[in-house]
Structures are given as structure tokens and as C-alpha cells.
Design a protein around this nucleic acid. Structure first.
Length: 605
DNA sequence: ATGCCATGTCATATC
DNA sequence: GCGATATGACATGGC
């Protein structure tokens, strides 16, 4: 393989074909085409850039349409639904002083559209220049000089560096939803880190990034390997593969950080606690500084935590000392596949067996703890490991299903009233802007096993199954089969639907079974109690009758003695009770019988 | 740290 | 034979 690589620069077409064959043979071993042939890689890069330019033009048109549509919509924070905008399309601008603290808050109600965010990003951080593309970007790609004209409607897409950058355009293109992040539209001093954090908190951006990165990886032959993202170490940039057209200079390219920090996302609620000073705008961004920045939410919230230093140091040590396995070093898929390379694995993910062997984003998330998660956070993360794994695997696999009606972002192609799932779940499931778990255990407790219930819902969403789980489970078999026949479903979807139906029915059956068992147990307990009561009653009755019997015997003895004492012989003397006894025949006649035998026996003795 | 409990899931039997 | 249901066993998470 080394020989091939060394001589690849002068490869003839025949050799290239041979290389291609060899590469295809070695692809199972994880080898990449770029390893073999530099010229081929360059050729592919050119083709890819050409495609990107075409895609850019197409996406630009789409974005214009989306923009027009989204101006009429706003995101309902509670339901996650996109509601027609009741307020004027020009949101009131928060005062400049409050910008630093409110710009990242998602609860204030003001919304920053996705385009605005990306505009802000592009203008604040003209990273186009830092990306080392195989070929220089087109000359017309220039960073925006100022943030002042940050209104997207003030700039045409041609003027926007975002639109002009093929990569950014590709990353931004599929968005369809407005982002509920308040922002000042004035030329307030927004520093780079703030801009990035703001963007990092956008689920749509995360979604788009993942999809676009997936596309880029696909184009570069990275889809055949499903490598989990294991490395969240500050040095993870060294583990990144050489992605042509993507990024190789990590230290100064926030987009890579953006891509790599999905799981370590700063919770939006904490973002507003971050205050960064504008002078940092010109800070040289190293990987460490950015990582620290992105992972310091808890250090901000718990500045006095005595565990913090331990967590930061010890956990980081663990991360650094952890031997890296080959599968962990390659990160071409980031978290896009989460180690699940097949739908079958994905479907079995709830078994709890296969997951243990999968390098999970949770692990990387734990690794992120070295950047400021407290000890309690680590504990919480650990307890939610499987949940977290699944959440990622589900949503990410869903994005690979391009046929899915749910894969186009938060705004589904389904009509709003025909969405089989609550739209809030769609947004929540696809956007990773929120921590997948909450520290509010009481809330989780009160929710019971809703999270378990939602597993299948998430799976269904991920695979783009256009039915509600409840429908799948509760529909009569005929209606169910009819429903299945009415929709074009692939094998994976059908398998999942039948599994969902089986599990759902079995869950209800188990509940009924346990209910019956409990009822049976309680019935038996009641029966036992009744029997005990009956037994006690009978014992009392027996004792009472024994008493009566004893009394009757005593009365009979007294009567006998009285009768016997009144008997007289021929001489008028009373009979001795020891010599005679009174006996009664069956007809009621009484006889005085001498105790002869007893006397004789006594004489014999 | 550990045990208990509730629940989900699977495998299998039965209807 | 197939699907629904029942149930024992096990896993998991919360307390």
C-alpha cells in the first residue's frame, strides 16, 4: 500500500483503475481512497466543488423561499410548533445593554432567524480564509467587513459570505425554521465566541451541520466506515481524518469545533450566563481556548464547587491516559452513525446488549466533563448513558434515511394537522440544543417511563414512519395491515413497525398480566383472611359448645346423684352408689343394676 | 453501596 | 399457520 501511495502521482489511467479495484477490496479494512491516489482525490475534489457550486445555486433559491415562508412563522417555545407570526415581522430590538445577557436566551420570546444567526456567524468569524481547501476558494469569497448590516434582508445572498462560501451554504441550506434566539439587530459588539455559542445552541444548525457533514463525508468515501466519535479531548483535532474540502487546520477553524461539539453542547439556559467581553474578538483561537469556552457552563454556574477542580483535572487525566483504540482515532463519521452502521443494529439498540460494545457519544460526552462538568453531572450522565446513546443513535440514524419525511429538519413535509407525532418532539428529537436529560429527577419520576415509551416514538421518527406509535400499537390487525399496505415502507421500517406493535402490545399485556397477578395475589390474600376468620369463628363456636356440653354433663351428674339418693331398698336403706348404678333402656325405663362385676373384680384382686 | 420496586422487553407457551 | 395474549425471566432505572 505504501508503494502505491508513493507512486500515485504519476499513475496512469490503467493504474488508477487498478488502484480503484484495490481500494474497493481494502475498503472493508477501513482504508480510504485518498490514501492511494492523490490525483484521484484532487479530481474528486474538483467534481465535488463543482457539485457544491451547483448545489449552492439551487439552495440559494430554496433559501429565498424559506426565508419568505419563515418570516411568517415563529417557533412556539412550549409546543415546538411553528405558528403564524402574530407580531410584526420586525421584532423589537432589545436594548444594547441587555444584549450580552439576553442574546442567548431562548425564553425571552424574541427570535433570531437561522439566516440571521448564520449571517452573524459569517460576519463575525470569516473563517473562510482559515479553511484549507485543496484549492483556493473563488476570489469573490470575501468576509463581510462588519456586523453592522447583519439583517439578512439587508443583504442579498450574493453579498453574504455565508452564501458565497460553498461549505457554509451547504451547511446552511436545508434549514426551514426560524430560530427562537433573541438577538439584537443593531451593530452591537458581538464577539466571536458568543456568535459561535449562539450558533451552537441552534438545533437547526446542528441538524444541518450533521447532514451536510454527512454529505461531505459521503462524497469523500467515508460512509463505509462507521466510526463513533470517541474523542472529545482538546487534542482531538489530531485524530481528525484528512477530509478534503473540509478542514485540516483545527486550531483556527471554529467550524470543526462546531461539528465536534454537538454532544458537548452548552445548554442554552446556561448560555445567557456567559458574558464575554468584546475585546476577545481578536483573540487567537486555539482548540483549548474554544473547548474551555464551550464547556465552562457548569463552571460558571458552580464557581465554588469543590468538585470542580477534581473533575476538571482527574477526568481530563482519564481522557488523556485512556488508550485510544483505532476505532476511536478515526472520526470521519463524527456522531453521525454512533457506531451503528446498520439499521439492524439500530433496531436492536434497545436490547441493552449490543449497546455495550458501542462507543457512544455519551462516552465522549463524559470526556467532555474534563472541560468543566461537575461531578454530579458526570454521575447524571453515567446514569443516563443508555438513554443518551439511544437518543443519539436514533436521531442520527434517522438522518441517514433520506426518504424519511422527518429528515428534512424540524419542519416536516407533513401538513401540520396530519403530523403523527407532537411537533415538539420532532424539534426536540432532531435538535440537540438541549441536554438530553435533566437533573430534575422528580420530573423524570413523575413522567414515569415516558422516556421508555418515547423510545419507539423516536425510532419511528428516525426512520420516518408516518404513523403514531399509538396507532401502530392499538390499531386492529385488519386496519393495521391496511395502513401498512397504503404506505410505501421499506423493509427496515416494516420491521420496526412490527417490533413497535409487538413491544407495545406486549407492554400492555405485561401490564395486564401484572395487574391480574396483583389482583390474584390480593384475591388470595382476601381469601386467606376470610378463611382465617372462619377458622377463628369455628374455634370459638367449638369452645362454646364444649362449654355447653360440659355444663350439661355436670347437670346430668347432679341429677343422677339426686335420683340415686332417693332410691330405698326393702328395708328403707339407701343404695350405695358403689354397689349399684342406674341404667336407662332405650324405651325410657330405668333399672337399678348392681355393680356385681366390679365387686367380683375387686374380690379377685 | 445495596436492596427493593416498578416497568419494559424478550422468549416461550397458550389461545 | 399466524396473530394475539399470557407469563416467567431478565434488564434497567429510580428511590
Amino acid at each position: 500500500m505504501m508503494e502505491v501511495e508513493l507512486s500515485s502521482a504519476h499513475r496512469s489511467q490503467q493504474d488508477m483503475n487498478l488502484i480503484d479495484i484495490l481500494w474497493r477490496q481494502d475498503i472493508d479494512l477501513g482504508a480510504e481512497r485518498e490514501v492511494f491516489d492523490l490525483s484521484l482525490r484532487q479530481k474528486e475534489d474538483e467534481l465535488r466543488r463543482q457539485r457544491e457550486l451547483e448545489e449552492e445555486n439551487r439552495l440559494h433559491l430554496l433559501r429565498e423561499q424559506d426565508k419568505a415562508l419563515l418570516e411568517q412563522l415563529e417557533l412556539d417555545e412550549e409546543t415546538g410548533e411553528f405558528m403564524p407570526c402574530l407580531l410584526p415581522s420586525e421584532p423589537e430590538l432589545p436594548n444594547t445593554e441587555g444584549n450580552q445577557n439576553t442574546i442567548f436566551s431562548r425564553v425571552d420570546g424574541d427570535a433570531l432567524s437561522f439566516d440571521e444567526c448564520m449571517q452573524l456567524l459569517a460576519e463575525t468569524f470569516p473563517f473562510v480564509e482559515t479553511i484549507e481547501l485543496p484549492h483556493p476558494p473563488p476570489a469573490h469569497i470575501m468576509p463581510s467587513p462588519s456586523i453592522g448590516n447583519s439583517r439578512p434582508d439587508m443583504l442579498t445572498s450574493q453579498q453574504s459570505p455565508v452564501a458565497q462560501n460553498p461549505m457554509l451554504s451547504a451547511l446552511l441550506a436545508p434549514h426551514k425554521a426560524p430560530i427562537a434566539v433573541p438577538v439584537s439587530l443593531e451593530p452591537a459588539p458581538v464577539d466571536v465566541e458568543q456568535a459561535w455559542m449562539e450558533l451552537l445552541s441552534l438545533p437547526e444548525l446542528q441538524q444541518n451541520l450533521k447532514m451536510q457533514v454527512s454529505d461531505i463525508l459521503d462524497q469523500n468515501g467515508y460512509t463505509s466506515t462507521s466510526m463513533p466519535l470517541e474523542v472529545q479531548d482538546p487534542n482531538y483535532s489530531f485524530y481528525l481524518p484528512e477530509l478534503p474540502g473540509l478542514v485540516t487546520n483545527i486550531d483556527t477553524t471554529p467550524p470543526v469545533l462546531l461539528i465536534n461539539n454537538f454532544k458537548g453542547m452548552v445548554p442554552p439556559d446556561n448560555l445567557n450566563q456567559m458574558t464575554l467581553k468584546p475585546p476577545e474578538l481578536n483573540t487567537t483561537y486555539t482548540t483549548d481556548s474554544l473547548c474551555k469556552l464551550f464547556y465552562t457552563d457548569h463552571s460558571n454556574t458552580k464557581p465554588s464547587s469543590p468538585m470542580l477542580s477534581y473533575t476538571s483535572n482527574e477526568a481530563e487525566k482519564e481522557v488523556r491516559h485512556k488508550p485510544l483504540e483505532p476505532s476511536e482515532i478515526h472520526v470521519p463519521q463524527f456522531s453521525l452513525t454512533d457506531g451503528h452502521s446498520s439499521a439492524t443494529e439500530f433496531l436492536d439498540s434497545d436490547s441493552g446488549l449490543s449497546m455495550d460494545n458501542v462507543s457512544s457519544p455519551m462516552k465522549s460526552h463524559q470526556d467532555d466533563s474534563s472541560m468543566g462538568y461537575s461531578d454530579s453531572d458526570l454521575e447524571e450522565m453515567d446514569s443516563n448513558r443508555s438513554e443518551y446513546r439511544e437518543m443519539f443513535s436514533l436521531s442520527l440514524h434517522g438522518e441517514e434515511q433520506q426518504s424519511s419525511p422527518f429528515n428534512t429538519g424540524p419542519v416536516s413535509h407533513f401538513p401540520a394537522d396530519s403530523l403523527p407525532y407532537p411537533k415538539s418532539e420532532l424539534i426536540e428529537g432532531n435538535g440537540h440544543n438541549q441536554r438530553p436529560f435533566t437533573k430534575d429527577k422528580s420530573r423524570r419520576r413523575s413522567a414515569g417511563y415516558q422516556s421508555r415509551l418515547s423510545r419507539d416514538e423516536q425510532r419511528a421518527k428516525a426512520l420516518g414512519i408516518p404513523f403514531a406509535v399509538e396507532l401502530i400499537i392499538n390499531l386492529p390487525v385488519d386496519d393495521f395491515n391496511e395502513l401498512m399496505s397504503k404506505h410505501q415502507l421499506n423493509e427496515v421500517q416494516l420491521v420496526l413497525i412490527r417490533d413497535i406493535r409487538r413491544r407495545g402490545k406486549n407492554k400492555v399485556a405485561a401490564q395486564n398480566c401484572r395487574k391480574r397477578k396483583m389482583e390474584s395475589i390480593s384475591g388470595l390474600e382476601g381469601e386467606l383472611e376470610a378463611l382465617c376468620e372462619k377458622k377463628a369463628h369455628l374455634l370459638r363456636e367449638s369452645a362454646q359448645r364444649n362449654g355447653s356440653l360440659k355444663e350439661l354433663k355436670e347437670q346430668l351428674g347432679s341429677l343422677y346423684l339426686e335420683v340415686f339418693s332417693r332410691l330405698r331398698d326393702e328395708e328403707g336403706k339407701p343404695y350405695s352408689p358403689s354397689d349399684y348404678s342406674l341404667q336407662q333402656t332405650s324405651d325410657g325405663s330405668m333399672f337399678l343394676v348392681p355393680r356385681v362385676k366390679k365387686t367380683l373384680k375387686g374380690e379377685d384382686k
